[in-house]
Simulated scan of single mutants.
Amino acid sequence: MMRFLQQLWLNFLMIVILAWFGGYVLFIHQVRTQPNDVTRKADAIVVLTGTTARLNVAYQLLTEGAGERLLISGVNRVISKETLRQALDVNEKIMECCIDIGKQALDTVGNADEISLWAAERGYKSLLVVTSAYHMPRSLVEIRRMLPDATLLPVPAQDKSLDLENWWQNPKSMYILAAEFNKFLFSLIRARTESAVMSGDSN
């Protein structure tokens, strides 16, 4: 009996590992092939801080008229608006008229909360979302939790420190992607659970 239970457990563990790895590969494929149509327009633009590339893409979208306003979410609380403007070489008039800085978010969940409050306050129904490609799936899940009726248009920024083309040959890339995949799974399960609970409450 004991041997049977051990074998049953090993089989279950093997299925879990294979399922996780299959999901991991699909996640990377999604990250590598997600749309990046920077010609799209929305009510506004939001960027989750993390790399300069993200900020540059978001600012370019703003100057090209892709959205009427930009929120930079998750800025370090000790950084002033002027310091950020100088660091990014942003036009002073554009910084004053069209860019807002959020300093409350400490993680992706915080970003989503900050973005949802900002969008709701201004009545925005569609958003261009800028973050790194590998971070985009989880960011969209978290923002949709807060803004279920909004249209979210992803604009992934290239992260030169992460090799998406040959990720299996780069231990650092494999580790970063695996860690992000686990976080994405947690966010997705939580979002689906909350949705199911809310649907149950409404019936």
Rank of each mutant, 00 (worst) to 15 (best):
N111S: 06
D107I: 02
F21L: 15
H29W: 15
L117H: 14
W20E: 08
F21H: 12
G22F: 11
I143W: 01
A42V: 07
S116L: 04
T39S: 15
L26Q: 13
L106H: 10
D89M: 12
I79K: 13
D100H: 07
V90A: 13
G123I: 06
E68M: 12
V75P: 01
V57Y: 09
W20Y: 14
K125Y: 08
S132K: 07
Q60C: 08
N36F: 06
F21T: 10
E114K: 04
K81D: 13
T151G: 01
M146K: 15
T33G: 05
A66P: 03
V38N: 11
A19Q: 10
E82F: 02
R77L: 11
P148L: 06
I28H: 05
N36M: 11
V57H: 02
L26E: 12
L127K: 00
N91R: 05
S139E: 08
Y134D: 11
E142G: 02
G110T: 05
R54H: 11
L152V: 01
S73M: 11
L140P: 00
V78M: 14
A58V: 06
T83A: 15
T52N: 13
Q34E: 13
Y24T: 00
E114T: 03
E68F: 09
P148G: 01
L140E: 00
R69N: 13
K93Q: 14
E64Q: 15
A44Y: 09
R77C: 05
L128V: 05
S116D: 00
Q86W: 11
E96R: 13
W118P: 05
V129M: 07
I143R: 00
G110L: 08
R85G: 02
S132E: 09
H135P: 08
A66T: 04
V109K: 14
E64Y: 12
A58Y: 10
D89N: 13
D89R: 13
G110A: 09
V47T: 11
K125I: 01
G74S: 07
N56P: 01
T83E: 15
L147D: 00
G65A: 08
Y59L: 15
E142Y: 04
I115P: 00
F21P: 00
Q30T: 12
A119T: 03
L152G: 00
K125L: 10
R77S: 15
T63R: 13
T51R: 15
S80P: 06
A53S: 15
G110R: 07
E114N: 03
V47N: 03
V78W: 15
P35G: 09
L55A: 12
Y134Q: 08
M95T: 05
I99D: 00
T131F: 05
Y134H: 13
S73C: 10
L70V: 04
G110Q: 09
R144I: 02
I101K: 01
I99F: 09
A19P: 00
A58K: 06
T63C: 12
P35S: 06
G67S: 09
I79P: 02
L61I: 07
A105D: 04
G23N: 03
R69D: 11
I115Q: 04
A53I: 03
A105S: 10
L128M: 10
G67C: 09
V141Q: 03
K103P: 00
T63G: 08
T63H: 08
I115S: 02
L88K: 00
C97F: 10
C98L: 09
Y134C: 05
Q104R: 12
S126N: 06
R144L: 08
N76M: 14
V130D: 03
L106D: 09
L128F: 07
G23C: 07
V57R: 11
